[in-house]
Simulated assay, not measured.
Amino acid sequence: MKAIILGAGRIGRGFVCELLLSNHVEVVFFDASDDMVKALNEKKEYTIHVLGNEELSTKVENVKAYSIHDIEQLATSWEESDMIFTACGGKNMPAVGETLGKAFRLLLEKGAVHTSNIITCENWIDPATDLKTAILETLNDEESKDVFEKNTGVSESVILCTGTGAPDPSKVVNEMDTWVQNLWYLPVDKSRILGDIPQWNHIQFIDNFGNLLKQKIYTNNTSVASVAFFGRLRGIRRVADAANHPDIEPLLDKVYEEINTALINGMGIDEKSQLEFSKNAKAKYTDYNIVDDVTRIARDPIRKLGPEDRLIGPLKMALKAGVQPKTIALATAAALYYQDPEDADANKLVELRKEKGIDYILATISKLEKDEEATKLIKEGIEELKQRGWIEGDA
């Protein structure tokens, strides 16, 4: 079997590639970065290092990579492949969908349409919906849309594994090498898959996928974002150092308490499942073997302050479930004061806060009214951060 991986970043060329190779699936990469494509083709090989377990590392050989903008090559590779995995970033699903739509039109012209499936591997809510919508919009005639619907499944997975940079960059020999957490499990929504279900190790096509993706984002992403925003205010560089810090770890535990209650009461998530989910999440972010920077986790703070994203989304859900999410609100306050000179989004946030104020940000970005409970809790969080000495006024 052959598969396409769209996105040759840490998750694509690391975690997803490793899972496919372990199932004897031939892989070809497509990436938006010409530099990435050039480097992969020049090196032709790289190593997927397993954090804390170097003996489990995998050498990837005979690497092939193409530009995602090469629509003809994408169509040719699709003609030969049964599966496409995306690891491009959730916000890029509309653009990726347009690209896939164009490639599918070429398949139609060549009479090469066959049963295939696209699986999103994104930290995003409803990425498969965003992707499929963009594909169908690109296929702007009903006949093409109908052929696509009958022959192509668009499903989604939940990425639980972390991909990072090198623990010691000075020792890197091949810049294409990547480092991943020792966690080999990818759950996929079985209900959206067309045709025969592959019998693969580590990749589980599950029934009742339901709210698993939202559960993951509102547990893992919310908690690690909280760690990152708190850690940045405390001047801590690494995620694990922040998660284990005596000022932050108690806050992390409270975040999990609020998230657990919100998801159990607000979404009907099984209590035992959710408690185990949050336990595993904390173990992951406090693991010193996983070397990750808080700036990578906290980057693009404006997006992370969106109305359904990892802070505001669970905060509102908690309130509806009768929970007072004071610690999530505190993390949101920390996000509002996030600074990183190398992050354009963070610089824009600083500018908005200084020129427009907190109420403006919460109203325009987070879609919160000035007098609603969530806004009040966040403002209380800002005052608490000032009392802790973690921020000073509007600096």
Rank of each mutant, 00 (worst) to 15 (best):
T286W: 00
Q204R: 09
Y285W: 12
L194E: 07
A103H: 00
F148W: 03
N174M: 11
L100S: 04
V154I: 12
A39N: 12
K272P: 00
L252A: 07
V113W: 00
Y338W: 10
I135E: 02
S22E: 15
A112W: 00
N140M: 03
W390N: 10
K64D: 04
K145A: 07
K272W: 02
E72G: 05
M1C: 06
N117I: 07
V291S: 10
L212S: 10
A240C: 10
D177T: 07
E54H: 10
K110V: 07
R303S: 13
H114S: 07
N92F: 09
I361K: 05
I358R: 01
K132I: 00
P167D: 12
I11P: 02
G235Y: 04
T138P: 02
R310W: 09
L139S: 03
T261A: 13
S366I: 05
E156T: 12
A318S: 10
K348W: 05
M176Q: 15
V16G: 12
E373I: 13
F30T: 01
E271G: 04
N265K: 15
D196C: 00
T138R: 11
L160V: 06
A395L: 11
I358H: 01
G165M: 08
I217K: 09
K348M: 14
V180A: 09
N289Q: 11
I365K: 14
G163H: 08
D241F: 07
L131T: 02
N221Q: 10
V154K: 03
D141P: 02
I11W: 07
T138Y: 00
